[in-house]
Amino acid sequence: MNGLGTFPLGRHLPGDSFLHRSDPRAKLLFLFGIAIAAFTARSVAAVLVLSLLVPAAIAGSGVSPAYVVRAIGRTAVFVGILAAVQLFIPRPEPPLFVLGPLSVTAGGLKEAVLVWLRLLLLFALGALLTLTTPPLVLAAGVVRLAAPLRRVGVPVDAFGLMLMLALRFIPTLLEALERIMKAQAARGVDFTSGRLRERIVALLSVVVPLFAFAFERAEAMALALEARGYRPDAPRTSRRRLAFGWRDVVLAATLALALAVAAWDRGRGGP
């Protein structure tokens, strides 16, 4: 239960690295493009090639590799559960082996590994994006990118604010989660073992107070924003001007390469 507050989700690490100094819009587009590439690629090998971006991005972020690797490791288990769903989708092929009522096929296994790798890749790059970009700057980047949608009536600025608040909120929530888990553990809740019924109670004993806490905090934060003159529909300025630089060109070139790999892989022998 310890160390939740140090999980990279929504955390920002001040710094001066390549990624810190790249434009938030470039980083967002890069992440979006890699997502497309990852889901375009059809072979495990191609996705593994794309995964080479992770060590490159770690190097370009100045964040301790051991820390990022550990965070990926912790996530791998959860993402693994999501990916395992692929194993159980019925497929018209002979099973490799049978697991109770379910039969696992070669195709299912491949899909599960693919989903697992893709999600981990996106988690790692997403974590590095938030680690190297302050939430306010990230939200400004999203708003600027989505600005054309304003013309068709999309509330781009409100969306940007919600994004910023959500990012800003994650560490606060994780901290509260840790405190509530400690309090319930002291009252005898065991989060690591027990029968199903006990596990449900353990979950409830954390989730119910966490929701109450989140509502309380969200209300106060919304109030504070309004008090500071934030209006989603009003024009605002930014003391930090966004500008593309050579780093963003490097990101764009890397992305083009990744997309090419993915397209080639798909064209090579997709179904």
């Binding site: 002291a186 954390v206 806490f213």
Partner: peptide, 17 residues
């Protein structure tokens, strides 16, 4: 030993569920 220890952490009302 842990069962014999109590903890009233900050804002203990957040443990009510």
């Amino acid at each position: 030993v842990r069962r014999r220890i109590g903890a009233v952490l900050q804002h203990p009302e957040h443990q009510l569920f």
